[in-house]
Amino acid sequence: MTAKELVEKFELEVIAGPNLTVEIDGAYCGDLLSNVMARAEKSNLWLTVQGHQNVVAVALLVEISAVILVEGFEYDEQAIQKAEAKGVNLLKSSDKCYELAAKLAASGI
């Protein structure tokens, strides 16, 4: 599934979408950046409540397919600018982290 298909299927909001044709493979949930660095895998979606610019840096290093900010949190303006510049997809959902993760898992991600 591509990020674009994911957005349509789960009615996610695209905050920055410079690379929506990227393929998704699995997902990781977490808000501690060291853990995300160590445990998330390439092409994973990353579900988090962190919306600041260092999320973009971590997503870029781990090669996350898209960040999904859950539970209605907002991205910082600097995060959005950085994501557009560096090609990182930033999505948003009002679902709770577990609810969205369960939906993703049920769909085979």
């Binding site: 808000d31 501690l32 950046l33 060291s34 853990n35 995300v36 660095m37 160590a38 988090t48 962190q50 600041h52 260092n54 999320v55």
Partner: peptide, 15 residues
């Protein structure tokens, strides 16, 4: 609050 300071930084480096 930004997700740093989990006390895993140098642990990760060592790993």
């Amino acid at each position: 609050e930004m997700g740093f300071g989990a006390g895993m930084g140098l642990v990760n480096v060592k790993r």
